[in-house]
Design a protein around this nucleic acid. Structure first.
Lengths: 227, 227
DNA sequence: GGAGAAACATACACGCATGCATGTATGTAA
DNA sequence: TTACATACATGCATGCGTGTATGTTTCTCC
């Protein structure tokens, strides 16, 4: 081992360790939440000791906040960025929802939902950080909805902020619930989002073959959706 | 106190204590989840000692399972029962969603979501109990969707079981997210559910006044939706 | 090669929460 | 009234996990 490994700089070692710890912590946070996030376990799964974890992060809370920021940056790069590139508000909202559904096909997407639900009834820095992220997202979506209604592309309905809250809640729930169930995750996401915005269903072009497939699909197969 | 209190039977005392403990546990579960459910705290909030809690429930897990059963029974009585009374599948699905939104105006509605998310990545009896409940619900909804499609009342779309999973996820998310935001919680719930089923938006009859209200509502008011 | 800092690993201290043992109060039947 | 069972309350034992202290390894610069 001392022969095969090249000589790494301290900066390289630090970044490598940090990355491994962040990924291990994210996995545990997504499956077990913050209260069950045991740092000894995180360290072992990252391939280091708990001392190494404490060398990099002051405490458990700071580790969790680092994971939250990491997930947010990943989401922005893959989802937010694409939606922001759209000119039309409806296109932006639909693109965001579709990209989010794709984002949810990865395990790490579950981190924010898990932590958000966990801290919903508690006053805690991690919960506050997530609430701030989602407040910003809600504001962005509310602006898009308002713009879409002003242009006539979106029919009138409940106040933009309430509609945006429902939109993001749906995006989150459907994305996680149907994660990995391609291609249904994308279709059902699109349907739900159109519905909450008050938009009519998209014309049925390729749905007929899918409908026929539904009739031919054994009920037993359908029953495996949840686990 | 010894003069004002009538002589209660042991059965009465037991039921009274049990009720108080269940309610206190439900409140804590909905805000802090299972991992942070501290029995000393539950006991204090119920007005009894931890010994009394252990007298009634073998351990923490059994208490949580009792709360889950209690919430399920309440949901069945107020939501499931009303939906089952509908003859038409679409009416059943819409009634269920509407009743669920009303159910979510109470704090206890949050228990199942909190626990479900908490145990999603763990193999635990409480998580299994909740998964079983939701599996049954998904099955019922899938049957309704299949019946609605067979009768032509619901357009074709992704497999009934996938659609049902999205339906219940939406019902859960929107219900909790907009809890207490009357009357928007009901309207947005209806919209989202119609959308995921592939049904067109309901004709705008009373939406115009609401739309005008939206324009007149200060943006600051909208920003208070989340907290 | 040696000194020093950073990257880790291991050990220590302590609080917290669970489950269980033991004690006290209250209802019931003879 | 007494004996017994049940409904609680209080005390004991123990393991778990966090944060911190201490020890070891590796890199960097002179």
């Amino acid at each position: 081992m001392t022969e095969a490994n090249p000589r790494r700089t301290q900066a390289d070692r630090r970044e490598r360790t940090r990355r491994a710890v962040l990924e291990a912590a994210a996995r545990r946070l997504s499956t077990h939440g913050y209260a069950n996030l045991v740092l000894e376990r995180v360290a072992n799964e990252a391939g280091y000791s708990r001392g190494a974890v404490y060398h990099l992060f002051a405490n458990k809370e700071e580790l969790a906040l680092a994971v939250v920021r990491w997930v947010e940056e990943t989401w922005e790069a893959e989802v937010g960025h694409a939606a922001a590139g759209e000119v039309d508000p409806v296109d932006a909202l639909m693109t965001m929802a579709e990209r989010h559904a794709l984002f949810c096909r990865r395990e790490v997407a579950r981190v924010l939902l898990t932590l958000r639900v966990e801290f919903a009834g508690q006053d805690h820095p991690v919960g506050q950080a997530i609430a701030a992220i989602l407040d910003r997202l809600d504001g962005t979506c509310a602006d898009l909805i308002a713009a879409g209604r002003a242009s006539g592309a979106i029919p009138p309905g409940p106040p933009p902020r309430h509609t945006a809250a429902a939109y993001t809640a749906i995006m989150e729930a459907v994305g996680i619930e149907l994660a990995g169930q391609a291609p249904h995750d994308l279709e059902l996401m699109g349907r739900a989002v159109r519905g909450v915005l008050g938009l009519p269903p998209t014309p049925i072009v390729t749905d007929s073959p899918s409908g026929a497939g539904s009739a031919a699909t054994p009920v037993h197969t359908d029953r495996e959706v949840r686990r």
